[in-house]
Design a protein around this nucleic acid. Structure first.
Lengths: 159, 159
DNA sequence: GTTCGTGCAAACCGTTTGCACCGAC
DNA sequence: GTCGGTGCAAACGGTTTGCACGAAC
C-alpha cells in the first residue's frame, strides 16, 4: 500500500480531531493492500490476518470514516450486502459493468461515456459532479456455452 | 391498470403450472396501478388498501414471481431496502439518474446512451442484451441554494 | 382428494448500537 | 485525567422460511 494513502487518512483523522489508533491503521492496510472490491465481512477477514483481535464493529465504523473522507466508495452490485471499491483514489472516473448472469464486475474508463453522462445529466437539470455509470450486461460465454470461467470460479468457491 | 398486464401474468402463471389466486391478483393490481417505484413494504401497504388481509410474506413471494417473469425489475437506489420499478413493460430501455444529494430519481431514454452501452459492452467481451445504465449526479438546486423541491418533499414526509 | 398457496411467527443475516473498559492525547 | 475508540453482545430491520390451515384444481 502506498504511503500516500496513509498520509491522506492521517490528515483526515487530524483535521477532524480524531485519534490515530493501531486498529484504524490495520483496517486501512487491509482495505488498500489490493485493488479487489470487498464486503465488510471480507474486510474484517483481511484485517484479522494482520491483527486477529480486530473487531467487526470497528471495521464497520472505520468503513464509515473511509466513505466520509472519500477514500472508499460503495458500489451497487448484486446487493445482498454492501460492496466497497478501493480504486477511486487511483481512477476517480472509472465505471462498472456488471454481468447479471455470472456476477463478474469489470472496471472501465471511457471518454465518450464521460461526455455523454455530462450531457444527459445537464439536460435533466442536474450537476454532473460525481459522475459514475453502471452497465448491466449478459455474459456472452455463459449464454453460448452454458459456462464461463467466472462462474467456474464462483462454483469452486473462490471465496 | 391495463388488462394486457393481467393477461401476461396469467399466461406466466399458467405456463409454470401455478395457481391463479385472489391474493396474486390484488398484489398485481397494487404494483401496476401507478408508475411509481416502490419497496416491498410500500407494495404491502398498497395491496392492503385493496384487501386488508394481504400478508407480507405473500407480497414478498409474489415480487419474486414478477421478477422471474420480467414484469418487474429491481433497481439500485440508495439501497437500504430494495426498490422495484414497474415501468420496464412500457419502456424496456429506460435508464435512471439518481441524485446523490436529494435522492431524486429521474427516468430517461437516450439513443446515444443505448449505442454507447452497446459498444462498451461488446468491447469488454459481453453481450449487450439487458442494457441498463445508472448515472449518479448532484442536485444543482440543492448545491446552489441549499434546498430543492425534492428535499422539501422528503422533509414534509411525502411517504 | 391432492397439491400448492397463504398467513403467521420465528429465524436469518448484514449492520448498528449501548455500555463498560482501554488507550491516545 | 479526560475523552474518544474499541470490543462484546444485544438490538435492529428488511427478507426468508417452517408449518399448519385453506383454497385451486
Amino acid at each position: 500500500m502506498e504511503s500516500e494513502i496513509k498520509k491522506r487518512f492521517d490528515n483526515y483523522i487530524r483535521e477532524k480531531g480524531l485519534r490515530k489508533t493501531a486498529q484504524r491503521d490495520v483496517i486501512l492496510e487491509a482495505a488498500f493492500s489490493s485493488d479487489d472490491h470487498f464486503t465488510a465481512e471480507e474486510l474484517w477477514m483481511k484485517a484479522r490476518k494482520i491483527d486477529p483481535k480486530t473487531s467487526r464493529a470497528t471495521v464497520y465504523r472505520t468503513i464509515t470514516l473511509l466513505l466520509e473522507c472519500g477514500m472508499l466508495r460503495e458500489i451497487d452490485l448484486g446487493r445482498d450486502e454492501r460492496v466497497y471499491d478501493p480504486n477511486f483514489i487511483e481512477s476517480p472516473d472509472h465505471n462498472h459493468l456488471i454481468c447479471i448472469d455470472c456476477g463478474k464486475v469489470v472496471e472501465f474508463e471511457d471518454e465518450n461515456a464521460a461526455v455523454l453522462i455530462d450531457c444527459i445529466t445537464r439536460r435533466l437539470g442536474f450537476r454532473p459532479t460525481s459522475k459514475s455509470m453502471r452497465i448491466e450486461a449478459c455474459c456472452d460465454k455463459l449464454r453460448s456455452s452454458g459456462m464461463c470461467e467466472n462462474l467456474i470460479e464462483l462454483r469452486l468457491g473462490k471465496k
